[in-house]
Design a protein around this nucleic acid. Structure first.
Lengths: 233, 233
DNA sequence: CGATATATTGACAGGAGTCAAAGAGGGTGG
DNA sequence: CCACCCTCTTTGACTCCTGTCAATATATCG
């Protein structure tokens, strides 16, 4: 039951009685597999349920008036990328699968019912959404203060850490099924420039991103370039 | 009682019984005036209370490992910029006054006590922190997709809207006690370039930022440059 | 009135974008 | 199993936006 990954994640920041965990587990109504690039929710929609990523990847994005798309964040197994839809309802951005993904869906009404009698669980979900906000802040720092290659290195370091915490990094290698054009949209760079950075990283043995797999070459260098502080999982 | 501004803001997104409002009002223990550039909380600290801005401005910032400071957001009267410290405790960034400001402080323990019996209020605060997160997302889009002058225009348009909603814009003019160097840190630009953009805006009659006051010249142009969608308050 | 912070200028360098074309990879259908 | 197509990646040439450095002017404040 890979819903355990989400529970493990919640437990990293919140102590929860077993009954709350059980209640949460029981409220996951349906599980669906979606191919890559499928919209999960769109900006402007009112959400009636939220999802847990059971496997695969998803990303959140927003298009600005000048037509450019900005990718706000990437999400991995265990994440609940549209939790904020529970209190806010109206989505302010899109949520899309990056690769084929298995998603668990939780109906808002059902979730509200169990939260009503379980304040600790409600608090845990609040906390979860605040951790999400903290990642956005990090991303602002990344976009605002670093050079193109620093941004790229930071992204990889952040992913390595989050995937590592979920046990999804092996042999300094992990899955990341992304195109350079999406990388460009996430980092605020042009595709061409992303390509050049990746090539430089490759020839300098820093890392290799090929065929949807990242191979870490020189972790020290990545962390240093990206100014990523905690090397620990 | 300028704590009303905060209550008005909460009510914009949440229906709250009068007793909850009263409880919230009563929990603001002390009010303090701080001069500009005073730290309110620092990154790494554990917060024991949170604050409401009663008047003046504050900003949140984070310094990245390369030494550059990134300003994450600006805050105005009615905002609770460190609400997230209630569930998360450890601050991941600094909070500082921009100008002289009056702050109301709320003790976490006292707040927790009233939240325990007032789920609607707890939910309103959760929502408030999600609105905050949505602003961060907007800011990511701003940094990632717009040119330097677009970013500047967006910042001004966003401020105009938020201040307008609080009734703090008169004659297309509002207070914004900021230096160009802080603007640079917020927009991810160099001071020199910020200066040039402001001059261009000035000579082209788009807007004028001088002596800590913004005078809007051509609102249409600002909104268009910044790609800001809702002109309405 | 001097001292310090902030704003303004100019000259120059370089990182990142744009445009346009050519290769590679991965599917798909015959 | 190969030909074809479509998407993604890679290249090269060129432009220009934004940063850096360093000096000067202007505000602000005690």
């Amino acid at each position: 039951m890979p819903i355990e990954t989400m529970i493990r994640k919640l437990r990293q920041h919140s102590e929860l009685p077993n009954e709350d965990i059980e209640a949460l587990r029981s409220v996951v109504a349906s599980v669906k597999s979606l191919p890559g690039d499928s919209p999960i929710v769109r900006e402007g929609e009112l959400s009636t349920h939220c999802c847990v990523i059971l496997s695969g990847f998803a990303y959140r994005s927003k298009v600005s008036e000048n037509g450019k798309r900005q990718i706000l964040s990437f999400h991995i197994a265990g994440d609940m990328p549209d939790l904020h839809g529970l209190p806010l309802k109206r989505m302010d951005h899109d949520l899309t699968t990056l690769s084929e993904a298995r998603l668990g869906f939780i109906d808002h009404n059902a979730l509200e019912r169990i939260l009503a009698t379980r304040p600790a669980l409600a608090r845990a979900l609040w906390r979860e959404s605040l951790v999400d906000a903290a990642l956005f802040r990090q991303w602002i720092v990344n976009l605002g203060t670093r050079s193109a290659s620093g941004r790229m290195a930071y992204l990889i370091a952040e992913l390595r850490q989050r995937l590592g915490a979920m046990g999804m990094v092996a042999n300094e290698q992990f899955d990341f099924p992304i195109t350079q054009s999406k990388l460009a949209d996430a980092l605020g760079l042009s595709v061409v420039h992303v390509n050049r950075i990746l090539q430089r990283f490759r020839t300098e043995g820093i890392l290799d991103l090929k065929r949807r797999v990242v191979t870490l070459g020189d972790l020290e260098k990545i962390v240093q370039l990206g100014g990523f502080d905690s090397l620990e999982d």
